[in-house]
């Protein structure tokens, strides 16, 4: 079934160099629509760099990033760059070290995420200054959407608290909800389970399944192998900036290249100590 699904995101020959350091070297993979794709690898493998390229925070040194929209049109993400990856291509992301608007309330965080839609409804700020009916309806709809997500992540009680006052696990969930309020086609999660306890991780897995069921595809970086193996449809393994494996969880788990990358084999140890 999944073999025939159109690749939502096609990464081809992605290379990212910082001065003399090649952080990502000729990486290519596909993330299919309706799937959870995981990118794993040891520390420093270049996972976050790949993420930053996809989400427009870095401009890749080389390579193409194609996003296929529902109507079949293809968007070159590396040409969009910046915030347009989020606003035009509808690729949302979260951050490894949570980036909420700490001094704004939980509800405000979710409304800021709907900025572009509200701005258009507010006549770019001018009509809404006069309080037109169209804008008020749009704002009600935005609050309704926020309320829906708050219900889903179990934070409706804390809607009027500052986001910075939430416990760590709740902040993680809120950041995901905030990204989802932009109505993305692809949600990129950078280590969503980092720092969560087992129960919170369980709830996260359920939330991610929910999101996939609602039609949004997911791409995630994760170190919690239990979680990755359980929820992913497809796994890409990076090591030292190169892709070393690509396939289903079962195939990746059995791949000798992956095992040696994680556990280290003697050849590699020698090569590293020699370098």
């Amino acid at each position: 079934m999944t073999e025939h699904a159109a690749p939502l995101l096609a990464v081809d020959g992605l290379t990212m160099r910082f001065g003399g350091l090649t952080a990502v070297d000729d990486v290519g993979f596909a993330a299919r629509a309706g799937e959870i794709t995981a990118v794993i690898g040891p520390n420093g493998a270049g996972k976050t760099t790949v993420f930053n390229c996809i989400t427009g925070f870095y401009r890749p040194s080389a390579g193409r990033l194609w996003l296929t929209r529902a109507d079949g049109a293809r968007i070159a993400l590396e040409r969009l760059g910046g915030e347009r990856v989020a606003s035009r291509a509808r690729v949302a992301r979260t951050f490894q070290n949570i980036r909420l608007f700490a001094g704004m309330t939980v509800l405000e965080n979710l409304l800021v995420a709907q900025h572009n839609r509200l701005m258009a409804a507010s006549g770019f700020g001018l009509l809404a200054l006069l309080g037109t009916r169209g804008y008020r309806a749009a704002e009600r709809a935005a609050i309704e959407r926020a309320r829906l997500w708050l219900d889903r992540i179990g934070l409706i009680e804390r809607a009027d608290d500052p986001a910075g006052a939430l416990p760590y696990g709740a902040q993680r969930r809120l950041e995901i909800a905030r990204a989802m309020c932009t109505e993305p086609v692809l949600l990129c999660l950078d280590e969503p389970a980092a720092g969560l306890n087992p129960r919170e991780t369980e709830a996260l897995a359920a939330l991610l399944h929910d999101i996939r069921a609602s039609g949004c595809s997911l791409l995630l970086i994760e170190h919690d192998m239990g979680l990755v193996m359980r929820i992913s449809d497809h796994i890409i393994v990076l090591d030292h900036g190169r892709k070393i494996s690509d396939g289903t969880p079962a195939a990746v788990r059995a791949d000798p290249a992956v095992i040696s990358a994680y556990l280290g084999d003697e050849d590699e140890d020698e090569a590293e100590s020699g370098a």
Binding site: A86, F95, R99, F101, H115
Partner: peptide, 9 residues
Amino acid sequence: IACRSLGIN
């Protein structure tokens, strides 16, 4: 940076 990730110019 979070603003950028939410598509805010």
